[in-house]
C-alpha cells in the first residue's frame, strides 16, 4: 500500500529588501505555515548586499514557523559582505546553501535541497567557453565549479524528493521575456546539465525579473522562475506528489 502525500514548497526570489523594508516584509508571510511545509528563497534578498540590509532580511525571516532555506544572489554579493550576510541569516534560523545541500524532515518525508547562487555563461551553442583571456576562463570556470559541486551534493543526498535552489537560471525557457543579448548573464546550461546528470524533482531560480514562470531542463526536470516580479505575488507554492510506500 502506498499513501500519496504532498510536499508543499513556498518559494520566492528577488525580494530585494532595503533598510526601509524593516518591519514590513514579515506580514506577507503571515499564515505561510498553513500553506507550505518549507519556505525557499532564491537569492537577491537585499538591494545592495550591505550588512545592514542583511540584518533586515534576517530579522524579517527570524524564527519562521516552517523551515526556511535560502541562497544568495548577485545583489547580495555587491558589497563583498556575502559571508557576513549568510551568518546573519543563519543566526536567525535560516538555512543558507552555498553550493551544498541539506535534508529536511517534512512530516514523514525527507526533502533534500541542494543549491547556491549559481552563475552565468549562457546556453548550449551560444555560450562562453574556457578559452582565451584569463578573465573569460575564470568566468566560465566559476560556473563549472558550481555545477560540479551541485552534482556531487545531489549524488550524496539521500531523500524522498530533491529540489535544487538557485539564483541564476539553468535554462533559457524561463528567461523568455528578457533581452536575448543578456542571457549569458542570467544563467548557464552547465547548471542544468549537472542537475540532469545527478537527478532532481524540481529546480527553483530567480534573477530574471522579466522572464517566464515555467520551463524544463533537457532531461525533463521542471524549472520554475520564482522571481517576485514574475510571480506577481508574495510567493508561489509548489506541491510535489510524494509516494510514501510502505
Amino acid at each position: 500500500m502506498s499513501i500519496l502525500t504532498d510536499l508543499r514548497i513556498a518559494a520566492v526570489g528577488d525580494i530585494h529588501l532595503g533598510e526601509d523594508g524593516r518591519g514590513h516584509y514579515r506580514r506577507k508571510l503571515q499564515g505561510i505555515e498553513e500553506r507550505a511545509d518549507v519556505f525557499m528563497l532564491a537569492g537577491d534578498l537585499t538591494r545592495h548586499g550591505t550588512l545592514e540590509e542583511g540584518k533586515v532580511v534576517a530579522d524579517e525571516l527570524r524564527d519562521l514557523p516552517i523551515p526556511a532555506v535560502a541562497v544568495l544572489g548577485n545583489h547580495d554579493y555587491h558589497s563583498d559582505m556575502e559571508h557576513e550576510i549568510a551568518e546573519e541569516l543563519r543566526d536567525a534560523g535560516v538555512i543558507v546553501l552555498d553550493d551544498d545541500g541539506v535534508v529536511l524532515q517534512c512530516g514523514d518525508m525527507k526533502l533534500g535541497v541542494v543549491g547556491g547562487k549559481g552563475f552565468g555563461g549562457g546556453f548550449a551553442g551560444k555560450c562562453a567557453s574556457e578559452f582565451g583571456e584569463r578573465e573569460i576562463k575564470n568566468f566560465v570556470a566559476h560556473t563549472r565549479s558550481i555545477a560540479e559541486a551541485w552534482k556531487l551534493a545531489l549524488k550524496e543526498i539521500v531523500a524522498d524528493e530533491r529540489v535544487v535552489l538557485s539564483h541564476y537560471s539553468p535554462i533559457k525557457e524561463t528567461l523568455e521575456g528578457e533581452p536575448a543579448e543578456i542571457y549569458p548573464f542570467l544563467g548557464s546550461y552547465l547548471l542544468a546539465e549537472a542537475v540532469d546528470t545527478a537527478g532532481a524533482d524540481l529546480i527553483l531560480h530567480g534573477h530574471a525579473h522579466k522572464g517566464s514562470p515555467k520551463g524544463m531542463t533537457p532531461g525533463g526536470i521542471r524549472v520554475r522562475n520564482v522571481a517576485l516580479p514574475v510571480l506577481g505575488r508574495a510567493y508561489g507554492v509548489y506541491c510535489l506528489d510524494c509516494e510514501n510506500g510502505s
Partner: peptide, 14 residues
C-alpha cells in the same frame, strides 16, 4: 510598482 502581498494558487507537480 507591484506590491505582492498575497500568495497565489498552489501548483501541483505530479
Amino acid at each position: 510598482v507591484v506590491d505582492a502581498t498575497e500568495p497565489g494558487e498552489d501548483e501541483h507537480l505530479d
